[in-house]
Write a protein that binds this DNA or RNA. Structure first.
Lengths: 301, 301
DNA sequence: GTTGCAGTTTGTCTAGGACAAAACAAGTAA
DNA sequence: TTACTTGTTTTGTCCTAGACAAACTGCAAC
């Protein structure tokens, strides 16, 4: 089976590599080399799509395409595991329980995972649950995915179940009449929402009024929403997969459509890769976010 | 303000119109006509981006670009309201309470909306809540958005809050050891999840075992997930915004990577616009979904 | 009505060229 | 050693312009 072939649009959808890039690589590196259909259009076999996704994964980790494409398939796996093992060990060493949670996901046992997490939440309280469980767990799932020991769909399952837990926990919190009004969202193309939910949980605990708008808001709409909700802070999230080149321009454009008195905060792993900018405050960790909130309150006391 | 200009990538992000289409329209229809920067690259002013989004909205409704672009801006609004008013009236006439819920969203009063919905859920029970409240409400929000009386961010707020309610309700249901195992997800580029959640709620009520994988799964990964979870049914959702041309090929490819004995169901407004296919069962309404489930059970009794 | 057939509209693909921004390497200064 | 500057290579994105197939329209015949 798996004799299906993919046209260039399908490959773009499935790998996240733009058509331009796919054609450019073919021209420059001689990979991928799809066959052609009757109209002379590219037909990618499934195996090339898989390899492309693996390469994209490594690129998001900081590797460069020229080298990856030159590397034979067998060595690709080795590349990653070497790099992320050192990361994984010092994170997971401290808390073997996280490993058990990961195992439940790996076994696709949704019910057991949810139960274990519920218990943890009850034991730790929401703040520590977010900081000591969800955050490192997400980190590790990311690493497992990077080194290939988690499939994409396993990461999706983790994300989906964890989203539900966090949302449920947030729903039980009282609305915060106290702190600033924080509008939480992400730009189009950026679909990762776990980071936003973690921040929302922490902010809601601090009594801030969070307005979750989900992901993928067009820039002009973010501006309108900020105005309509009279938001004090607009918080955006960028994941590692988001093209870093676009971020600075994007923040600049957003700054221009936002009300003067609204603060713009940009967080997530994606912003660690860009330099400082005058348009937005960059927030790289959950602690940073709490610090930023405290600092905002001091300035607006 | 709003003197910011957008490059072609930003416009693609914000409107959902591909770079190819943007350039083609410029060539053919003479709109949009962006200015150029020092490198000769296109710079779109904010107002053109807004008009493009409006046009895209109407296209998703079935209008054709050639005519829309020829229509002056003032008339665009009229086009839509005329078309959807007749729809709205016969839906909302029966239940004025839905109007109140819409008003709460329009006033951006998240807390009051959530409370009202919680009450409704308690009163109606989950099944009727989904079928008689969430489904028509979603329909109406879509129409309000189409005719411009809802902003995008208001639709997002509705979606986000309603997602939370449904997920919370689903979480309280016991896992179903009885029915088929249903894997719920959507393909990359398809981010709408409310429809999937509604189906999940109904199926979970029927005792089926639902495996929610969130949205945007690459095709090959859907195949792997179906195998790993031993899914009996793979249920996909397509919204109106999803390019209809891609759907048939996509279902065909998916059918090829799916285990033989797994059924493939495709639902959502998006599939109403494509013809019958041998690769998947098309499901256009929530009732259809329940019928399909009952039918599956009869065949596998 | 609806079925079939031309004609028109529309999106997507193709090709290759150009260029700027990012990443790297090497050399120099503290 | 570290920290900074400089030149070079790598890489993605944008550009133009042409071709074609699929989808839709309108008209005619049944």
């Amino acid at each position: 089976m798996n004799t299906a072939t993919f046209n260039i649009a399908a490959v773009e959808r499935d790998t996240g590599l733009s058509k331009d890039v796919l054609r450019m690589w073919e021209r420059r590196y001689g990979f991928p080399v799809p066959s052609r259909d009757n109209n002379g259009e590219r037909c990618y076999p499934a195996e090339q799509v898989d390899r492309l996704r693996q390469i994209k994964r490594l690129m998001d980790l900081g590797h460069r395409p020229g080298k990856l494409i030159a590397t034979p398939a067998e060595e690709l796996g080795a590349l990653t595991s070497r790099r992320s093992k050192q990361l994984t060990t010092d994170v997971s060493a401290g808390d073997g329980e996280l490993g058990e949670l990961l195992t439940l996901i790996k076994q696709h046992d949704a019910a057991a995972y949810q139960q274990a997490m519920q218990q943890r939440l009850a034991r730790q309280g929401l703040q520590r649950f977010v900081q000591d469980t969800v955050a490192p767990l997400t980190q590790q799932v990311g690493e497992k995915w990077e080194d290939g020991s988690f499939e994409v769909f396993e990461e999706h399952l983790y994300t989906e179940l964890t989203k539900r837990l966090l949302r449920q926990a947030i729903a039980t919190l009282p609305g915060g009449p106290r702190g600033p009004r924080v509008l939480l969202t992400s730009v189009p193309e950026e679909q990762h929402v776990l980071g936003l939910l973690m921040v929302e949980a922490l902010f809601a605990l601090e009594g801030a009024e969070c307005i979750p708008l989900g992901t993928q808001m067009p820039l002009l709409e973010i501006g309108r929403a900020a105005e309509a909700h009279q938001a004090d802070i607009v918080a955006l999230s960028f994941s590692l997969a988001f093209p870093p080149r676009q971020i600075p321009g994007l923040l600049q454009q957003l700054r221009q459509v936002l009300p003067e008195n609204a603060a713009l905060w940009a967080g997530g792993c994606g912003v660690t890769r860009i330099g400082k900018t005058g348009d937005a405050e960059l927030i790289t960790t959950l602690d940073d976010a709490l610090r930023a909130l405290a600092s905002w309150r001091r300035q607006h006391a």
